[in-house]
């Protein structure tokens, strides 16, 4: 059945599916920053990184959401401090003073939150798939990731219907009922989903094998996101920012004052 006789590439606008939005560059930055923040101690250096991470996050995340996430992190830190204060009444070793001692770990978490949000909310699933394709990962890593992204919307839809079926049977689904009978509620919700996933995975595997997947041929990457000038710019900027944080940590006159 020759179907390639009428090529009309113009019918497909590549921009409609163009993806990536520097996802790979952001992932790389995230990985590098994850390692750097553990090493850094200076609130100045970490603050510098946190400001940059916040700007990067704001390029993909609504301000309100970002503010909520940071507020939640701050709340958890304050809760930790409260617990620590209570324990310190019995154990003098836990008594610490100085706000920088609190600030440093908080800034570390803020950097990580900002950077991971910039990746997580930076692309639609189709763009993520294009970015993954562009990474040319080995099939055994690429395939599970593709399946995860592909199945999440279906799983959410399945879960909704399972929950509806439970509501029809008089089961209340709310935080209170989850707390009152956690094991039963989670069984009722998730056991049907496990069976569904087992079936879906089997059907997807059959379809994939019938299309020739896993037969040894190397997958070609049609419309895999390619690294562009924006990726280069972002990575270059990231390098400068990270170098700046090292300078602030060790060499900057201001760092000595902390």
């Amino acid at each position: 059945m020759p179907v390639s006789s009428a090529p009309s590439p113009a019918l497909l606008d590549p921009r409609s599916l163009a993806g990536g939005r520097e996802v790979r560059a952001r992932m790389l930055i995230c990985l590098a920053a994850s390692l750097v923040v553990v090493w850094l101690k200076s609130p100045l250096a970490l603050g510098w990184l946190a400001a940059w991470a916040t700007l990067l996050a704001l390029s993909t995340t609504p301000l309100r959401l970002l503010a909520k996430v940071y507020a939640l992190a701050a709340g958890l830190f304050l809760l930790s401090l409260g617990c620590g204060w209570v324990l310190a009444q019995w154990s003098p070793a836990l008594r610490q003073s100085g706000w920088t001692v609190f600030l440093t770990p908080f800034l570390r978490v803020a950097v990580l939150l900002g950077l991971t949000l910039s990746v997580a909310l930076g692309a639609r699933p189709t763009e993520l798939l294009a970015a993954l394709k562009g990474l040319r990962l080995p099939l055994f890593i690429h395939l599970p990731l593709v399946v995860m992204i592909r199945l999440v919307p279906s799983l959410i839809s399945d879960l909704r219907q399972i929950a509806d079926s439970l509501r029809l049977k008089g089961v209340r689904l709310n935080p209170l009922s989850l707390m009152a009978s956690p094991l039963l509620t989670s069984r009722l919700l998730f056991a049907p989903l496990v069976f569904r996933v087992l079936r879906s995975a089997e059907e997807l595997a059959v379809a994939a094998e019938l299309k020739g997947l896993g037969q040894g041929a190397r997958l070609s990457a049609w419309r895999g996101a390619r690294a562009g000038w924006r990726d280069g710019l972002l990575l270059g900027l990231a390098l400068l920012i990270l170098a700046g944080s090292f300078w602030l940590e060790n060499g900057a006159p201001a760092a000595r004052a902390w």
């Binding site: 009428a6 009309s8 070609s220």
Partner: peptide, 19 residues
């Protein structure tokens, strides 16, 4: 893609099939 065809050939076949 599973067959490892060249992206330009894939582009043509996809367009033809969709049409």
């Amino acid at each position: 893609e599973c067959r490892g065809l060249a992206p330009s050939l894939i582009e043509r076949r996809v367009a033809a099939c969709l049409e």
